Simulated scan of single mutants.
Amino acid sequence: MPEITIEHNPSEERLKELGVSNWEIWEKEISEFPIDFDETETAYILEGEILVTPEGGEPVRILPGDLVVFPEGLNSHWQVVKPLRKHYNYD
């Protein structure tokens, strides 16, 4: 089963290396919905809080300052606990 990976508070160098500041921004109000990833997404959380539950897995709490990789093939349920704002990029 594809796993979500989280890097907590990556360094400025790491964010620059990845070009995070040039990535698109996505915002979402408090809500719940399924997301199935047909390609790998890397996201950097600017604001908010989400609980992402992989199909058949345990919920993962994602907070501001987290650099998260949602792998291709991941089927998940999202619960946006606090309004979300994130940079994102597809491989």
Results as ranks from 00 to 15, higher is better:
Pro2Cys: 08
Gly73Leu: 05
Phe70Thr: 02
Ile45Leu: 12
Glu29Phe: 04
Lys82Arg: 14
Trp78Ala: 10
Ile45Lys: 01
Glu41Met: 06
Ile35Asp: 09
Arg85Glu: 08
Val20Asn: 06
Glu3Leu: 12
Arg85Tyr: 04
Pro34Met: 11
Pro71Met: 07
Ala43Met: 12
Pro71Val: 00
Glu32Ser: 15
Ser76Asn: 07
Thr40Gln: 11
Gly65Thr: 12
His77Asn: 10
Gly56Leu: 06
Glu29Leu: 10
Phe37His: 02
Glu17Cys: 02
Gly56Pro: 04
Ser31Pro: 05
Pro54Val: 11
Glu72Leu: 04
Lys28His: 09
His8Ser: 08
Leu18Gly: 04
Gly65Tyr: 13
Pro2Arg: 10
Lys82Ala: 14
Leu84Lys: 11
Glu49Trp: 00
Glu3Ile: 10
Asn9Pro: 04
Val60Leu: 02
Lys86Gly: 02
Glu13Ser: 14
Ile30Arg: 13
Gly65Lys: 09
Phe37Gln: 00
Val80Gln: 04
Trp26Tyr: 15
Glu7Thr: 15
Lys86Asn: 06
Glu29Thr: 02
Pro10Ser: 03
Pro2Gln: 08
His87Lys: 15
Asn9Glu: 12
Thr53Ser: 11
Asn75Pro: 00
Met1Val: 11
Pro34Ala: 13
Met1Trp: 06
Thr53Tyr: 13
Glu17Asn: 08
Glu49Met: 01
Phe33Met: 09
Lys28Glu: 13
Glu17Lys: 08
His8Cys: 00
Pro64Cys: 02
Pro64Trp: 02
Pro10Cys: 00
Asn9Gln: 10
Pro83Gly: 06
Leu74Ile: 07
Ile4Cys: 07
Ser21Asn: 10
Glu47Ser: 12
Pro71Lys: 09
Ile50Met: 13
His77Ile: 03
Ser31Ile: 04
Pro83Leu: 12
Asn9Phe: 10
Pro83Trp: 02
Tyr90Cys: 07
Lys16Arg: 13
Glu39Ile: 11
Glu27Met: 14
Glu49Leu: 01
Ile4Trp: 06
Glu55Cys: 03
Leu84Asn: 05
Glu32Met: 12
Val80Asp: 05
Gly57Arg: 04
Met1Leu: 09
His8Arg: 15
